[in-house]
Design a protein around this nucleic acid. Sequence first.
DNA 1: GACTGTGAATCTATTCACAGCG
DNA 2: CGCTGTGAATAGATTCACAGTC
Lengths: 226, 226
Amino acid sequence: MAYGYKIGMLPLTTVQRLPSYLRVVREMNRVGRTVVSSNRLGELLGLEAVQVRKDFGFIGITGMPKSGYQVEELVLAIEHCLCWNRVRDAVLVGVGHLGTALLGYQGFAAHGLNICAAFDLDPRVAGREVNGTPVSPMDQLEPVLHRLDVRMAILTVSPEAAQDVALRLANAGIEGIWNFTGYPLNLPGNVIVQDQDIAIGLAVLSAKLSANSRENVPLLLEGPPH
Amino acid sequence: MAYGYKIGMLPLTTVQRLPSYLRVVREMNRVGRTVVSSNRLGELLGLEAVQVRKDFGFIGITGMPKSGYQVEELVLAIEHCLCWNRVRDAVLVGVGHLGTALLGYQGFAAHGLNICAAFDLDPRVAGREVNGTPVSPMDQLEPVLHRLDVRMAILTVSPEAAQDVALRLANAGIEGIWNFTGYPLNLPGNVIVQDQDIAIGLAVLSAKLSANSRENVPLLLEGPPH
DNA sequence: GACTGTGAATCTATTCACAGCG
DNA sequence: CGCTGTGAATAGATTCACAGTC
């Protein structure tokens, strides 16, 4: 019930690896390389070659014995899986430090994402443009959303405001929320929430660093995974 | 070889859930709540109660039948696991949109992280302070690092510069790199790299959104996980 | 009765081993 | 041969079922 192993027909873990495959094969495509083996890709990304082959099997890509996979075919197939071959509009709510950074991030174009409007409570921010995107006051949220036909929202407000704003987004017909607030949103089941909690990465790194230190100090510790 | 299931003696998945537990129990502690059941925590975080109990077992916390777990004990134990109860210094390299946002992020204090110095190539940025942290030019990286005794670095340079800068950090004695560049770093095995790839979250959300659309359109699709 | 704690069962993901093909 | 593709084996995470305790 809590887990969510599959997305459509793809394993979640496969979907999570698609962006890194895509980055590499796009670069290969750019420099004119036409084929690549699972072995080479695995080497570049720190994965087992079998895993790469299994993943490509899931997204319906089949390679050629002896030579490998067609680079261009891979680019198109992965973009298709993620819908990154067409532009998806999104709105951003909360133009603080992080919201501003995301509005200025150039990479979204390569991921088919276009932030077409932003919102903020602060009257000093609302009304202006931030990194090229017009910012409206929060009370314009519902009217603007009704005009725009947007399915996705990026939530970068404070944790305290997160739940309220998310509910307003859900009621205004938003289908997917990319939640940067760290607050665990409680929404009707038809709204998809993707949590992007920066603290998780920091937690893993912190724990690894301290496990590393304890290795040099006398303490019981498990060896590396295999 | 590629996976990394355990951190010290804790399962990776448990470590990844610790930040959300911590956020909730800190809030409970703040408002004066002294005990909490696994059931209640699971409900708040969208997890099974058993999972919560298993996780707490791993970090050595034991509760009381009938009443539950001591909130304060949980806060201390989780902070201890993640080393978030003492301050860990870090440097940040690459003061662009994202780097600036991270320098302005107030939440790091709650995670025991203090960014004590930043670096950037751009001479217009280097020499100034950004959100309270002094920014030095890139050629000061090694000298400053030798003076500071810092173990961790936050990498927010462009993907093109990522590998070079990471190598310099590794050579200067940095033990852990929090890598926001999306570029797969290739470093000596004693350096811990934690990738924070924003594209992964977007990929999962994109895939879920389009899987959702296809549900309403005629197409074969698996039901929810269970 | 309402919780915790845990072995066993289940489900998922990764890895192995090897057949098949150009 | 050098590569892909895949059934079988293994490892890990979650969930179930239930015994134990206050």
